[in-house]
Design a protein around this nucleic acid. Structure first.
Lengths: 346, 346
DNA sequence: TCTGGTTATGATAGCGCAAACATTAGCGCC
DNA sequence: GGCGCTAATGTTTGCGCTATCATAACCAGA
């Protein structure tokens, strides 16, 4: 079969076929599928039998066209490699699926240009709602989303001017809190390593820098960033780089995510540096690994699955006509200090 | 906007609207979009301007209905939480996207019943091809897939009787090799911990057991399994359980995946057991973490991204009319022995 | 018996697009 | 100068379904 060049169209059964076999009109078959309560048990039975016999599967394109409802929710995320979005997606799929919606997901590869194209593609499927990541869409993209006149949720971060609905948390505040906490732990030569440097990472860094500056502990030479995508390997490299340029005078490092942090942790171990005595590490996102690795990794916990669930829930509410109490939801975050940092000296 | 109950349909622009504005017929607009080479530059320009002015986005439902081509590839995976499928998906998305296809993905939650329902849903979107996981679809599901008369790839494992095309590797052989290797390293009291126990994990275990039996080293009491989903936490628990029931007489453990293996590794460390001296560990899937953790984790490397890429490529080939040389591809695996096991005593 | 309502079913039209089949203009060529 | 060709554009039709309106059957109440 693999050598076959094109599928031989054996003419999928249609509503009309089912109707003929059951001896009813097409619309009755449609009703059996979409409004079963409006059909008598007798006919309903006959129709369902005919459906089984023919192996009838409705043509959703025709249905969408005729009813102007696609049962599709479009989702745009910046990356499929980043586990963070996996959890969010899972929440969206669980809720959307349970609500009878399909999810059409696209990966924008962190590029607003690509995002614009992919969202155009998504919109051509006439989704009934859209969930997109962050707020740095191109102007054209925002215009498309607005004129689509469907509910839109921007997720992952709190935005000043959401297009419509918004769920997330403040990455700036999170960075700020990490900074304050590390200083409270008594660290003074505090560094930062960041990768990818998308808007959310930039905000984390900005908040962190702000905290250090407030107590005059910001040292530009201790901040390293790269546009490369994050990985465990990269975390090790960046830490090594930072250690060498800072002349070893470094007592704590905030890593912009747990990939980098774990990489830094493993690299520290290979360099025989004791974490947290020689160097303290704090990550972001709180992967499952972070809680179990030795020493366990301090990190910022974010309710990702829950965020996906709520984003989808907000959408479903609007689609069902139930108003949401809030158009913007701050889902918060939680600093989880573990053994890769010492206890605050309070 | 969030309080709004339903979207006010501001009537999306249609082909006809664009045509009227550009002063051409509808089919010309259609051609500008789908066969630009068949339209004069002059008209092409005018039409594209009209499209921009109106912010026209084609209605894919109408297009699918009229052309009998949906540009959709359906994908069914058993779990979104399992990182393994993330990589495969990424490969599929990258290739399908580049080929101009959308991917409609569903999560079957490891349930053939749910899989059947979700595949029915997928088929109602008239996908031009399907990629599904493994071979344990229900009979009804297999019938649906066959009568859809579209290319189908079953992935993740090598099947005896594929529905159509197939890409994967032999989990049995992989388990067998792990068993042989551990014995070659000199281990004699060898255990197994497994979770979820889907068909692929069962095959890994069967192969592993086979290897041990061949040299009379299989001890049923050293094999622990649970239907619970894998996690790092669970890996620790299962190891603990195995150690207590085996009375500590255990020198190596094959974990059915790297989640469990990392959990077992971290738990060993917390119990002050030296890996690999007190206990050797081997995982499966080879996550990035496994190569960097200390001690680094022996594991079975599987080209997941590549598998997704090739699955999608096989599909695209058929859709383009290019025959695939093989309907079944064994993409193989590779044992990567690291420091969580000692070197073979050769 | 008739009225007015409800319930169950059917007939018709049209959603937006592209396939298939015209039509027209323009060209080279003998 | 007419033939046959190609390239560029248009007309018609129908994909499979559901919204809408019509119809038919039935029943309660006066």
């Amino acid at each position: 079969m693999a050598g076959r060049t094109r599928n031989t169209k054996s003419k999928r059964a249609t509503l009309a076929d089912v109707a003929k076999l059951a001896g009813v009109s097409a619309i009755t078959v449609s009703r059996v599928l979409n409004h079963p309560d409006k059909v008598s048990d007798d006919l309903g039975h006959r129709v369902r039998e005919a459906i089984d016999t023919l192996g009838y599967i409705p043509n959703q394109s025709a249905s969408s066209l005729a009813s102007a409802r696609s049962q599709v929710i479009g989702v745009a995320i910046p990356s499929l490699s980043n586990i963070v979005f996996n959890d969010v997606l899972r929440g969206i799929y669980d809720v959307a699926g349970a609500g009878g919606y399909k999810v059409l997901m696209v990966d924008t590869h962190y590029s607003p240009i690509e995002e614009e194209n992919m969202i155009r593609t998504l919109l051509s499927q006439s989704p009934e709602a859209m969930i997109v990541t962050g707020g740095d869409q191109t102007r054209a993209c925002q215009r498309m989303l607005s004129s689509a006149a469907i509910p839109v949720v921007q997720m992952m971060e709190i935005l000043e001017q959401p297009l419509d609905m918004n769920i997330g948390f403040s990455h700036f505040k999170a960075g700020l809190e990490v900074g304050k906490k590390l200083m409270a732990c008594g660290y003074r030569r505090i560094g930062f390593i960041g990768a990818r440097m998308d808007t959310r990472v930039q905000q984390r860094m900005a908040g962190f820098k702000e905290a250090l500056q407030q107590r005059d502990l910001y040292h530009a030479e201790l901040f390293t960033t790269t546009p490369s995508p994050s990985s465990i390997a990269l975390g090790g490299e960046l830490l090594r780089g930072l250690l060498s340029t800072s002349g070893g005078k470094l007592d704590a490092v905030f890593c912009c995510n747990d990939d980098l942090a774990l990489g830094a942790l493993f690299e520290s171990q290979r360099m025989n540096l004791n974490v947290p005595k020689d160097i303290a590490l704090c990550g972001f996102n709180d992967f499952e690994t972070s809680a179990f690795v030795n020493p366990s990794l301090s990190s910022v916990h974010v309710p990702r699955y829950e965020m996906g669930v709520q984003a989808a829930q907000m959408i479903l509410n609007v689609l069902k006509g139930v108003p949401n109490s809030e158009a913007q939801v701050d889902i918060g975050f939680e600093l989880r200090m573990r053994h890769s940092t010492r206890m605050p000296s309070v």
